[in-house]
Write a protein that binds this DNA or RNA. Structure first.
Length: 403
RNA sequence: GUGAGAUUAGCUCAGUUGGUUAGAGCACUGGUUUGUGGUGCCGGGGGUCGCGGGUUCGAAUCCCGUAUCUCACCCCA
């Protein structure tokens, strides 16, 4: 038997219900905030991700589905959504057009990782990107939008906030941190030593208890921000307070992708295991320029759909539509004909075999139909159809013309 | 990439110190109560026990390998 590849799932039945419920809800809310749908290719040039996400991240250095295509191009399946949207934004010359552009997207992403709870090799993200707004009000609006989506789905969360600083204040801070870690180099874990060379501020995120204790005395990014970054961060928290959005400041929150600066946020859930981040995002004012566009401020976030699905409260499914069946062979053709016209406007489950009434009622019940409609010899003779409302437990016999 | 635990019917799982035709519940399907369901009664189909080797008179059961799943690390949504 041929099986699906490791870490790649089929989505059907109840999973599909939840999936579409999520997409529908998130789509509606994103539209309310002025976002428009954008679809970008699953396959992109590898260098797009090297330049945006950054060589230093594991995503690019070891988790991409990368290959040379028949035209000798170095390509890969997208491991995340932002890079493609920014590429499209620049390619369509929207950077030069100026103004504000807001996009939302959803679709599959691919990372060659070891699967575990909340982590697949093909997974789905819903995300938004906003271009052209420098104001921190946009950052706040986006956070409130994520909050709206999660609330609409009945998902509990904690919001964690930090500022990653800008070109002015980040590099000196990074150097201070590196110096600090080097001063306790013999005590920290191997991973942290490795991180010093790749993505140094990620050491703050280390889960090793010894490291965590040591880093309590490490310089804090939040205390090293330049005046402008500091003002923005204070304004952001002020807006969130004003709008009753609860948050916690996590000075160790660093985003894994290189392109982030200033506002960084993560929505986490305590109910889905160790892969607890359900949505993450922040500001990336330099990325458009990195990808050959005109410097354009931007903010974005993405949510991992699979991680959210198991947290969603599904609204109770209600009985809907019709079930059609025949009690006698002679009635089947008529039942099929009636079904065909009913299907112009309603969901209809049709049974092709003549059965007794009990069988039909059972089948109608299982199909979650609201009405069970049956034609037997009595009905054939009188030109009528017998209908039972399975919800109200009422029944009636009406003329076929009135059906 | 590292570590741990799993893998028996469509699903959830039993299977006693290795021993005859591998079981249950649910699901599916047929009959039945002479035209009333979700909640009756009786029957039926369906498993090369993940895959490949090995030990043994004999393996679902013991050993080795491998794949997949689950969980954690790493990393990230």
């Amino acid at each position: 038997m041929i099986k699906s590849l490791r870490g790649m799932n089929d989505i059907l039945s109840e999973d599909y219900q939840r999936f579409t419920h999520f997409i529908d809800t998130a789509t509606e809310i994103a539209k309310r905030y002025g976002y428009h749908f954008i679809e970008t290719p699953l396959l992109e040039e590898t260098s797009l991700f090297k330049r945006s996400v950054g060589d230093s991240s594991d995503i690019v250095s070891k988790e991409m589905y990368q290959f040379i295509d028949k035209g000798d191009n170095d390509v890969c399946l997208r491991p995340e959504g932002t890079a493609g949207v920014v590429r499209a934004f620049v390619q369509k010359k929207l950077d030069k057009a100026g103004g504000i552009h807001r996009f939302f997207y959803h679709g599959p992403m691919f990372r060659y990782e070891r699967p575990q709870k909340g982590r697949l090799r093909e997974f789905h993200q819903f995300g938004v990107e906003s271009f052209g707004v420098e104001s921190v009000y946009e950052d706040a609006s986006m956070i409130m939008m994520v909050s709206d989506i999660l609330n609409a789905l009945g998902i509990g969360y904690r919001l964690q906030l930090n500022s990653l600083g800008c070109n002015e204040c980040m590099p000196p801070y990074r150097q201070n941190l590196v110096n600090f870690v080097k001063s306790v180099e013999d005590k920290v874990c191997d991973d942290c030593i490795r991180r010093l060379d790749t993505n140094s501020i990620r050491v703050l995120d280390c889960k090793n208890p010894t490291c965590q204790t040591l880093y309590r005395d490490a310089p804090k990014l939040i205390n090293s921000l330049c005046a402008s970054c500091n003002d923005d961060f204070n304004k952001l928290t002020e807006i969130l307070k004003e709008n009753n959005i609860e948050y916690e400041i996590d000075t160790n929150l660093v985003r894994g992708l290189d392109y982030y600066s200033k506002t960084a946020f993560e929505f986490v859930s305590d109910n889905i295991g160790s892969q607890s981040a359900i949505a993450g995002g922040g500001r990336y004012d330099r990325l458009v320029e990195f990808l050959d566009g005109k410097p354009t401020p931007a903010v974005g976030f993405a949510m991992g759909i699979e991680r959210l699905l198991e947290l969603i409260d599904m609204p109770q499914t209600k009985r809907d539509g019709y079930y059609m069946g025949a009690l006698d062979e002679e009635a089947i053709d008529l039942v099929v004909k009636l079904t065909q016209s009913k299907r112009k406007t309603h969901i209809v489950t049709l049974d092709y075999k003549a059965k007794n009434l009990q069988k039909h009622l059972k089948a109608a019940d299982k199909a979650d139909a609201k009405f069970c409609c049956v034609i037997g010899s009595n009905e054939l003779n009188n030109g009528t159809i017998w209908i039972k409302n399975l919800q109200e437990k009422t029944e009636e016999i009406i003329k076929i013309e009135d059906f």
